[in-house]
Design a protein around this nucleic acid. Structure first.
Lengths: 346, 346
DNA sequence: ATGAAAGCGCTAACAA
DNA sequence: TTGTTAGCGCTTTCAT
């Protein structure tokens, strides 16, 4: 005969229920469940068996109230500067996925908050609500001020993003300046001389990528065209439109350095649509190295960020801060990954 | 003189603090904060002002314990069948983004759980833990059995995915069969006769897409090649490898129907890499209509799913179930979006 | 219109 | 080794 499957009944709800069943007090059940050596082995096993049998699981809310912690980390995505970006950018799911891994790995829950920072009080409210033991903010967006203010009194807060001068909160982020610079220097090295920047340098990180772009151009050979920005929000449509527009009217260019891979992919499409070839006529380089980047046509040269390491660092620092330690900002190295979209012109 | 910014001090932590400051009892503060008409207007406003001034926010954990609810919805992503899929598939961020919108819009928090269902008890544990008032499972993955078992005693549970015969839990999902069928019929209508299916029909939804594929081929004109599956997990690398392999060795084909857009994009790349052109030599159609689909080169013909509507439906049904109502499964229509990758051959 | 008191389900001193 | 008790911060009768 086949072994019976555990019957699907509603679980016993409270610790007191199990206590009654086992003929002990709730304290003993609590201790047994916590694996305390104070409880006699036989009794402990009996209690464990009972709990298992009745599908009992400790109520996390009550436990957390008592323990004054929530065993939960809030992950916040501010959508201030560019509401188009986040819903569509694979960069975020990759980051979110890694964060989810790191957080659950350490026995915490992840409370995801997508906020429209129209209400300037979002951070104090989040902090005061007491639903989480610490907060990870993914992307500074336009919230630098709010972060500064909160960090003055709330410690367990880390931010993924760029390191701004004189900031007092703790950030983890890629070396945006260095990465961008390497990308543009690569374009220069392969003979490109009229390189445009695609993106809107308003958000902190894009600002830094733009800085790297300018820095690289400062060291460029004679005859290199001056910096030029194609303004476009960080979504495919905007990037496509900006590049098409530039191809139609402005001065010619032979390379695009896009502030993100999503923008870069749109740029490739706009260039193809205009009857030019990538990379023969125009080279394209992106930033992020999303997993799709290796699989577009042509495959995309881009600046790789190690998001797994970023997520791990973020959570490690956060846990330290939750323990009362101080931590300082971390800058992660980036790596240029050369693929087809930036091959030297015919 | 410039208006002073609110000074960044630590918020008052408990209701009793505010009560003391206002010279009333905690009960009164509670009532005032809840906007109860029992509290005199002047007193209420005074209390509100005080709370505001001291940055006081009600402690959600204590409140929820007392109220026996959490004001939180769990969103679970089982990663059983294909660990490669979720981290990299933009489909998920779009779904997650919409879910986050719908959940926060209704005043709930969203607890994100990524689970590796090696432990068969994950669902009972999640349910028993009492950290959320309801659960959304995104994708059945290989967890059909676990869902069946849990739904026997736990009501506030909805699942994004395919409707399987005789299932007792509530699902919301796109019409995978119809969508796939429309896609393949489109390929047939544009003259393709050797159409392969790319993907691994193990997960429930892909199974259904595969069914649609077969259905369409059953009604195909004479001379159409029989169904053929290129097995590949739902990640770019696997899809790329499978298509390259098929191009090198197996019988020729003139169209690929990919089980997801991510696979489709990799297919395009594999085809290009093999020196063939899309769509002239081989047409490619995907499934999902991720935001990038319109911006690849060539742009991707694909089956559009209305994820925003899906997310809204999911949450609406869940709230009903949380209220004790019964709900039945919903099938959402899909729409074929024809772009460049499936244009008729030369 | 307000306060006192009980209690949500758990854990940890403290006592035995 | 175990039970009793108090209390986490809040809401809600009940009494005034």
């Amino acid at each position: 005969m086949i072994k019976r499957r555990r019957k699907p009944t509603a679980p016993a709800s409270k610790m007191a229920d199990i206590a009654r069943l086992a003929g002990v007090s709730a304290s003993t059940v609590s201790r047994a469940l916590a694996g305390s050596p104070l409880v006699a082995k036989a009794k402990r096993e009996e209690i464990l068996r009972l709990a298992q049998e009745h599908g009992y699981v400790i109520n996390a809310v009550a436990r957390n109230l008592r323990l004054k912690r929530t065993q939960t980390i809030s992950v916040v995505i501010p959508m201030g500067h560019d509401s188009g970006q986040h819903l569509t950018d694979p960069f975020f799911i990759e980051m979110l996925g890694h964060l989810a891994d790191e957080i659950t790995l350490r026995g915490y829950g992840m409370l995801l908050q997508k906020i429209l920072p129209s209400d300037s009080e979002w951070l104090p409210q989040l902090i005061g609500g007491g639903r989480s033991d610490g907060i990870v903010v993914v992307g500074q967006s336009t919230e630098h001020e709010a972060l500064e203010a909160a960090s003055a009194y709330y410690k367990p807060l880390v931010v993924w993003g760029g390191h701004l001068p004189q900031q007092s909160y703790c950030t983890v982020g890629s070396d945006n300046v260095g990465g961008a610079r390497a990308a543009v220097e690569h374009l220069l090295a392969t003979g490109r001389r009229r390189i445009v920047f695609l993106g809107d340098p308003k958000a902190a990180e894009l600002q830094l990528r733009h800085d790297g772009y300018r820095l690289a151009l400062q060291g460029a050979p004679k005859g290199t065209a001056p910096p030029r920005v194609l303004h476009a929000a960080l979504n495919p449509e905007a990037a496509f439109a900006a590049v098409r527009q530039a191809l139609q009217s402005g001065p010619a260019f032979d390379a695009v350095f896009a502030a993100s891979d999503v923008s870069a992919i749109s740029a490739i499409r706009a260039i193809s649509a205009a009857g030019k070839r990538v990379p023969q006529d125009i080279a394209v380089v992106g930033f992020d190295d999303i997993s799709l980047a290796a699989h577009t046509t042509p495959s995309l040269t881009t600046v790789h960020q190690d998001l797994q390491r970023g997520a791990r660092t973020l959570i490690e620092l956060l846990l330290k801060r939750m323990d009362g330690e101080d931590t300082s900002t971390v800058l992660l190295p980036t790596k240029l990954v050369v693929r087809e979209s930036s091959a030297a012109a015919g």
